[in-house]
Every structure is written in C-alpha cells, then in structure tokens.
Design a binder for these strands. Structure first.
Lengths: 242, 242
DNA sequence: AAGTGGTCTAGACCACAAA
DNA sequence: TTGTGGTCTAGACCACTTG
C-alpha cells in the first residue's frame, strides 16, 4: 500500500482486487483470498482488508459467504439496477423548471383513487394535473390525488407543499414516511400526447406512486408520464473503470 | 443494548434509530446524534455505532456529511431504485423453464448490430430469437446478436453458453466483464405479440443489453421483450417495517 | 479441526465544516 | 477552535462451512 497516496488504503486495495477481477485473475465463480490473507499480504489490518472487500460487495462484484469465502459474481442481466437519477436531476434544477396546472378539481363519488387512499365514496379528493417543463420543454405530466382535509390551512398550500414539493423537489418540506412506486410501459392518450407535445400512441413510462405520511395514512397517490428519451433508464454492471 | 439478543448490537441500534425516524423523533432534514454520542449513550464502541448508522445509510434513510453530521433524508420519488429481481428469479427456476428457438440465422451485410458489436459489413453475426417460457407460459422474447467466431468450438455451444447461459442463468459459465442495459417502453409488433401470446400493440418493456468479454470486445447484443405483468418493477422507499 | 466471514473493542489520528 | 464523520490499528471472540 502506498501510504503517501491521498487514496485511503482500503480503496487502494479494493482497486487492486477489482483490477485482479478485471484481468481475469479471479474469474467469475472463483474465490478471493481470505480477508486475513489479504491483510497480511498488503500490510493492513484485518478491518481495513474487510472494508476493501466491502467496496466490491457494494459494487455487486463479489458475494460473501460466511464460513466459506468471498466469491466473484457472474455479470448478468439479473444484477442490474435502475435508479431515477436523471428524473431527480431535472427536479433539482429548479431554476429551469416551470409548473403549469392544466386541471384541478374536487372529486366526489366513487373511484379507484378513493380505494387507494383508503377513503369512502362520500369523501372528497383533490385531483390536480400538472405539466412540468424543463427549459421550456414539457418534461412530464403529473396526475395526483390528495385527500381533502378541511383542517389543513389552504388547498393551495396542500397542492404545492404536500403533493409536489414534498414528492419530488429536492429542497423544501416533506412529510412522507414511506412510499411505493411502480414503473410500467403505457401508451399516450391523445390529450396526454398534446400536453406533452409528443405523438399520440407513443409508448412512454408511467410511474405510479403512493406515499404515506407519518400517521401511516396514504396521502399522495398519482402518476407521472415521461418519455423514455427524457428519462433514460440505463444500468451498468461489472467493471467499467480501468 | 441487549447483549443476550441474537441480533448484533449494531443492528439493534440501527433499529432503534430507524424507529426514531419512523416516530418522527428525527424528522426529514434533521440531524442524528453524533456517532460518538450514540456510542456513549448506548454503551458500544464508536465503530459499532458507526456500523449502525451505515445500515441506515445503505437503506437511503440518512445522508452523511463529513465534518457536519448525519441527516435524515426526505422520502421522495428520486430516491427510488428498481431491480430486476422478478426477472432474475424466473431464470433461476430452471426446472420450470423452457427455451424454444424460433429463428436463427447468420447475418451478413450492413446492419445496426454490426456497428454495436464493432464489426464490418463483411463480418458475419449470428442472430437468434428465442421464446423463453416459464411454467409453460411465454415469459420473454429474446433477440440476440453474437459475433461469429470460427475458432470457437461450435455454433451451438456459443449460442447456449455465451449468449444465454452466461447472460441470464444463475448457474453456469459466464465470461462477461461488464455490460450495459437500457430499459424502454415499446409496442409489440404483430409477430412478437403472437409469439408471446399477447395482444398486438400492447405496451411492454424492452430491455436492451450489450455485454463485453474480458478482452473488452462487445460480444452479446440484443434485447428482451417482457410484459410488465410478468416483470413488475416496484420500488419501496422510506420505512416499511414497523 | 481448521479456515472463513461477522462482530466488537478501545483506542488513535486525519479531513472537513461550522461557529 | 470544536465537533463531526472518515480511516486505521491490533487485537479478540463468535458463527458458520468444509474437509
């Protein structure tokens, strides 16, 4: 280990092991040297060697088996993992963001949103449709259903704070304890296509969401429609940095 | 800490902190007690307290800032993360898996696959279309392009080993160093719909892949078409286990 | 029984942030 | 300057796997 290097010892060792995997010295399925062996061989403590292996484990390059050893993972489609980083980045760039409400109404009567939000038909929900544009180009259509709570200060505050700011904006208030999201492919309806300035019948992503507040009440139900060109879902697996 | 518990101290402390976040004791944006404070308060060493906080960090519940503190993350759509676990699980269940090759040919001449694989028009590529069924129900259509290497033992071995076994099966040989995947929504063509026993024009996931071998040559290009009902992409964020 | 990863301690020093 | 997280040591014991 190069103690003069600004790179910590565990990262140096991790790089060393990664390069060993990359060169084929440790092929998929093979076992890495034991952590104690690594520690002795590279003159670091056992904890430091362990931390190095942990880096590879977090990168999905190896699998630890207690009592047996640490094994090099096979690279395959199953190890991939998609995040919404490009989606979140747009919402982080608030200077170039425009939000336009295209529809807002109080819905009474039955409807699937009532069931999801745990309400009865007689209860009211607020439905809001927004076009969110980035750099003056439509980015996503957001449809949301929120419970109408008369004790809450104002409807406007709820719309902005609870549903939008809390849900997607990086900064600002949020009061969600948990949420579930589902990604599906779907077709644009004529009206949706017009709002997004896309072609009707074009396949896009639909991102459903249901968020719960700290009282475990479902409070923010809805979905985003996003062109895959504006939200590329790309995942890299294996070793890319040599 | 309960030393008699089978649960390690760091996990107990992590649960304790998680429950504090869950109860709203540490609301989003607030700072957790310093690791040294936690260690003293709960009678564990600094490393153990640190490990506890690391658990929350891996769960995306907190964000560490060096020199400043550890802060509770806001739960929002941007923190979500989709894996292909349900996809990989099907391929792990090899007892109930059937593979049927519906088309196989050697392609010469220009084509997008040549470019992706870094070949010239005069080179040959092997194109294979497979229907992969799970429990006798069509699960996915896989189209793959592989470089034709005359020095390789047999074409059949390549098809099975390199492209299919290596790419998706949990067990077996694999020789990929890295790969990139892209998920897009698309529409089924009539032929594709027939093969998958789905409706024409139905929106489905298209999962493109390009895998590189240990010589950094792109070797396995292709895509999977999968109904979102057979591969639900669901992500949970925040605190779900109380 | 021997080897492996998993947990844990009681210190130490460093890099960085904020007052 | 003080407090925070980040790295590191040199041990220790435990749980588990494998021969």
């Amino acid at each position: 280990m190069d103690k003069a290097s600004p790179m910590p010892a565990y990262a140096q060792l991790a790089d060393f092991l990664r390069s060993g995997i990359s060169r084929g010295e440790y092929p998929p399925g093979s076992r890495l040297p034991a952590e104690a062996t690594l520690a002795k061989a590279y003159g670091v403590s056992a904890m430091t060697a362990r931390q190095a292996v942990s880096v590879l484990e977090e990168n999905n390059l190896v699998r630890r088996v207690q009592g047996s050893g640490t094994y090099v993972r096979k690279v395959d489609v199953g190890t991939s993992n998609f995040d919404l980083e490009s989606f979140a980045r747009v919402f982080g760039d608030q200077d170039n963001l425009q939000v336009r409400i295209v529809k807002a109404e109080v819905k009474k009567g039955a409807g699937p949103e009532k069931e999801v939000l745990g309400l009865q038909a007689k209860d009211s929900v607020i439905m809001v449709e927004r076009i969110i544009s980035h750099q003056n180009e439509p980015f996503t259509l957001h449809v949301s259903f929120t419970t109408f709570d008369p004790t809450s200060p104002t409807v406007e505050a709820m719309l902005d704070t609870v549903v939008l700011t809390g849900l997607i904006f990086q900064e600002g208030y949020s009061n969600f304890k948990r949420g579930s999201l589902r990604l599906t492919p779907t077709l644009l309806e004529p009206r949706e296509a017009r709002l997004l300035e896309l072609k009707q019948g074009e396949p896009v992503f639909k991102l459903d969401h249901l968020f719960y507040n700290f009282d475990d009440q479902p409070t923010a139900f809805g979905w985003f429609l996003i062109s895959h060109e504006k939200m590329p879902l790309i995942s890299k697996v294996g070793i890319w940095d040599d």
